[in-house]
Amino acid sequence: MFKQLPNDQLEMVDILLNGEKIQVPLGTNVAAMTLSQGQRYTRTTSLSGSKRAPFCMMGVCYECLMVIDGIANQRSCVTYVKQGMQIETQQGVGSLPEGAHHE
């Protein structure tokens, strides 16, 4: 669906996209990176389970929600890739981090 034009001015970083290690230019927004990797959707809805993908790319529609570094519901279009970032497709409402444990 999309491809990224080469840009040798940018430093490359390693990230994990759905568990797969890839190299992308530092500072690219996560949504653009995900789409240019050939992934067609970024989340499923919690109600009907239907697939959704970035729609506005400017932070207003909340369709691009992904799990980024373990935190669900992040707008991938306004989050920028960093070395070692872990990015996952979000299923429904996602999950909460584990609460603190009691004995």
Binding site: A72, N73, L96, P97, G99, A100
Partner: peptide, 9 residues
């Protein structure tokens, strides 16, 4: 009471 909710919007 629920520290796991930090990132909740």
């Amino acid at each position: 009471f629920f520290p796991q909710l930090q990132e909740v919007r």
